[in-house]
Every structure is written in C-alpha cells, then in structure tokens.
Design a protein around this nucleic acid. Structure first.
Length: 376
DNA sequence: ACTCTGAGTCAAGACGGT
DNA sequence: ATAATTGACTCAGAGT
DNA sequence: ACCGTCC
C-alpha cells in the first residue's frame, strides 16, 4: 500500500516540498503514468447500476472508456502521457501478495453468501473488492494506446519504479500518480492526480524530491530507511514505531541499523528475520529498463484503426470516438507549439533546464548507473 | 491528557445536456 | 498456469 | 452544479 502516511508526514514536516499548480502550467509536459493502476481504477469506478460497462458479447469496456477519455483530456490540455505497464512483482512483495490473496478469498466467500441471500448491496460491495486487471485488459489498453499514438513501456518489474527511471533519465517531466512510492524511488518530480484537476477544479499537487529531503533534513538513503520504517509493501515494520517516532529516530541515528542499536528492542521489537536490507536495496536499485534504452514517441492517431477497434469490436459510439481522435490531432499540434512558447516566456525559471533536458531526449546519454539489474 | 499506532472500512471516471 | 491497488478516514486502546 | 448515461 505505498508508504503509509507519507503524504501526511510531508505535509507536516516538509510543507514546502509540495506546491499546487494549475493544470495549465503543465502545458507541453511529458508525464509517466502507471497504466496498471489506472486500469484497475477504471474497472472499479466505471460502472452503470453497479456493473461494468460491456459490449453486446459481454466483453468489459470500462477500462477502455476510462483510458480513452482520460488520455484525450490530457492531450487536450497539452500534457503528453506515457503509460507504464507492470511486469513481475519483486519476490519481496510475495508476503504482501499472500495477504491480499487471503483477503480476496475472504471476499469470494462473502460474495457467495451475499448472492445466496439475494443481498444485492453486499454482492456489489464484494464484487468490487474482487476486481482485478487481467492480461486481456492490459492487452486491450496497449492496443488502444498504440492506435491513439500514445507511447507505452512494459516494465520488467514495478511500474512505479520504471516511471521514476523515466523521470530521472529526463525522458519525462514527472510521474503522475497517487502512489507515494514514487518518491521513495527518488523521482525528481511527482504529480498527484494530473488528470482530475480540471474536472474537479482541484490544483495539481507537485512534489519535489529535493525539497522533501531538504525539508526533512535527510539524505536519499536516510529517506528510504524512513519509508521502510513507516511501512512499505516489501517488509514489515517495528511495532510501536509510526511516522513521528520514525522520523525522529532516522534524523538522530541516520539508518535502521543504528536505530536498532539505540532502541529498547523489548519495547519496540523488530520483525523476525526482518528483510529491511533487501527492501532498501529494492528501492535503491529497482529492476527497470534504463531510460536511455527507451524512446517515447507521440504520433497522430490512426483514426480508422481506433474506430475499427472501439466501435466495431466494442460497440462504442462512432461519432464520439471520431470526435476524440480529432482532439488528439489538434492537441498534439498545440502541445508542440506550447512547449516552444513557454520556453521563451519562462526565462528566469530554473525549470527551463529541466525542460531542455526533456527536449533533448537521449542525445547526451547519462552516465551509466552500475549494473544492478535484479535477477530472479 | 495527550500522542500515537494499527486494524478495519470505504470509495474509486468522464461526458454532455439541462 | 498464474497474479495484479491505494489512500483516506475512523476508532479503540496502548504508551508516554 | 447536478444527473443520467457511456458500453
């Protein structure tokens, strides 16, 4: 579940690390997005009378509805999304996954019960809890993105980590996510909910990694240890240590080893065989494809292809789909234009460097980060 | 009294006409 | 073959 | 801003 309470901790201890921006200020920006998470959310949220949208044959379309319109909305605002699909979860996560599986089986039983009792309210409740993105859903989305001219990346491991690699390798400006893990992986910039802002009139929250470290007065390594102490997906935590104590302890002792030496382990018992070192390694050197090996290209949509896929196969309204394709074409031109404009108008802005690097995509390849590829 | 943890529960999108 | 989320909120109870 | 509808 990401890092427990990290958003709150940053709000309390490093408030200047987050600034709120208008959606408009991201015109021309490239953003990396965890596709698997979006798909999951669409499958849960896009419903009618509690049931997912589907074509006549009963094939689910909720994920396609959501992805199609959200992507268009972003392009329409001059934001260029690149989607990242999950690969294999790291082995360290299996403990967490076992728990989730148990919860799932629990929900399945409850669902059966509710069905037999004819309790429609509970049936819906537990059906939602059982939702998951299948390989088929993922394939549908990849196909749609390809036809729309939107790039995507297949990550070897966690999508979130791959997004961060794209940011820090200057392929995109930031990660667009709800998941605070991105900061633990060290993303220079993280944007929360860059898509809903306009619909709900909420500003985009932009987190700066350097300012987080500054505000908390920690190095990246110390920050990773802090996140582990607060609770991540990869290992347990010390009972009795939450955000407040965790930050105090890390600021004082600098790392988990030293914390362990300085606390009363009877009062604060660490987990048996605690794998915090492995978790730390995972955050430091996640299994990702190096950014310089990835090329992201946004192109005009293949309108006939999109219509064929969405309308013929999935029964979407052709007028709406064509309308969307037009927006994609228009938005693309606008974004190219806008990026140049803002380059000249935002003269004294530090971020113009960043912007430049983003533009130069891969020309000067970064120094290789040692070969820490994970093998399993 | 106050602070904090940790367990459990919940809800989750976007469009277009009015 | 097979899997597959997350954050916000509340509340009880333990610790300081 | 609300609400029925999207498929």
């Amino acid at each position: 579940m990401g890092i427990h309470n990290l958003a709150k901790l940053i709000a309390d201890f490093a408030p200047s690390a987050m600034k709120e921006q208008e959606m408009k200020s991201y015109f021309g920006r490239k953003i990396a997005i965890d596709a698997s998470m979006c798909i999951y959310q669409f499958l849960i949220a896009v419903r009618s009378d509690g049931a997912q949208l589907a074509n006549e044959d009963g094939e689910v379309t909720s994920h396609l509805v959501g992805l199609f319109y959200r992507t268009i909305r972003m392009i329409d605002n001059g934001i260029k999304p690149a989607y990242v699909f999950d690969g294999k979860p790291p082995d360290l996560k299996s403990g967490e996954l076992v728990k989730r599986k148990e919860r799932r089986q629990e929900a399945e039983k409850e669902l059966e019960k509710a069905k037999e009792a004819g309790d429609t309210e509970n049936v819906q409740k537990f059906e939602r809890r059982l939702v998951r993105a299948t390989p088929q859903h993922n394939e549908d989305c990849k196909k749609l993105l390809k036809l729309m001219g939107i790039p995507y990346v297949e990550a070897p491991g966690e999508a979130e980590a791959q997004c961060v690699a794209l940011v820090n390798g200057d392929k995109v400006y930031g990660v667009g996510t709800e998941d605070m893990d991105a900061l633990t992986f060290g993303t220079k910039v993280m944007l929360r909910q860059p898509h809903t802002s306009e619909a709900k009139k909420l500003p985009v929250q932009e987190y700066s990694f350097n300012k987080v470290l500054e505000g908390l007065n920690l190095s990246h390594e110390e920050f990773i240890d802090l996140c582990i102490l607060m609770g991540c997906d990869y290992c347990g935590t010390i009972r009795g240590i939450g955000p407040k104590r965790a930050i105090e302890l890390i600021q004082k002792h600098k790392n988990i080893e030293a914390v362990l030496e300085n606390i009363d382990q009877k009062k604060y018992p660490p987990p048996e065989g605690w794998l915090f070192k492995q978790a730390r390694e995972l955050f430091k050197h996640p299994d990702v494809t190096p950014a310089e090996d990835i090329e992201l290209k946004w192109t005009d949509p293949d309108e006939e292809g999109v219509v064929d896929f969405m309308c013929k196969r999935f029964g979407f309204n052709e007028e709406r789909i064509r309308n969307g394709c037009q927006k994609l074409k228009k938005g693309r031109k606008g974004a190219t234009q806008g990026r140049l404009d803002s380059f000249f108008t935002v003269v004294a802005n530090k971020s113009s460097n960043k912007r430049k690097a983003e533009e130069m995509n891969g020309k000067k390849s970064k120094k290789a980060k040692g070969s820490f590829k994970k093998r399993k």
